[in-house]
Amino acid sequence: MELFFIFVAIVLTQNFVLHYFLGICPFLGVSDEMEAAFGMGIATTFVMTLTAIITWNINNFILEGFGVEFLEYVSFILVIASLVQLVEMFLKKYVPELYQTLGIYLPLITTNCAVMGLALFMVLRDYNFVQSAIFGFGAGVGFTLALIIMAGIRSELMEDAIPEPFRGTGITLLTAGLLALAFMGFSGLVPV
């Protein structure tokens, strides 16, 4: 039950994009088109789940094991960068169809702060191994959800007459604000 709450919390009530402001760059940049948003979401979920699993092990067995916690930032960013590279190489070789679809989004994930944020939050919250894996997967699902909702709204907005200074970023941010308000409505779902 506790694992289920972790999942629901990170997808809805504490959504990475709309509650913690993580992964805003792709959220604003990629969410023009539904298909692109979906591709980005899936690729990110994949990397996030793996990141959660690997950084948990590194943090517990290497960093804490040897008492070198101050290397946290340096080692996490290295893990994420190489993980993205590895996933890219693996997909290119063994699942070329998927690589074709996700191809351009993969390198962008390294600088997606949602992935780094995931690793840092996991350490701050002292999750165990299973909890971390669920947390990573849930964060990815939540990110995908926010991206897809936004893409849907933006495709409608393109048809509308919007005042010049609001075009693009301005209106997207206001929409995101309203979306965040709506997501606050979920806040009673999970006992804190």
Partner: peptide
């Protein structure tokens, strides 16, 4: 969270 998005949208 919503305040952040709204204020930034208005400032932009």
């Amino acid at each position: 969270a919503p305040g952040g998005f709204l204020v930034l949208g208005l400032l932009v």
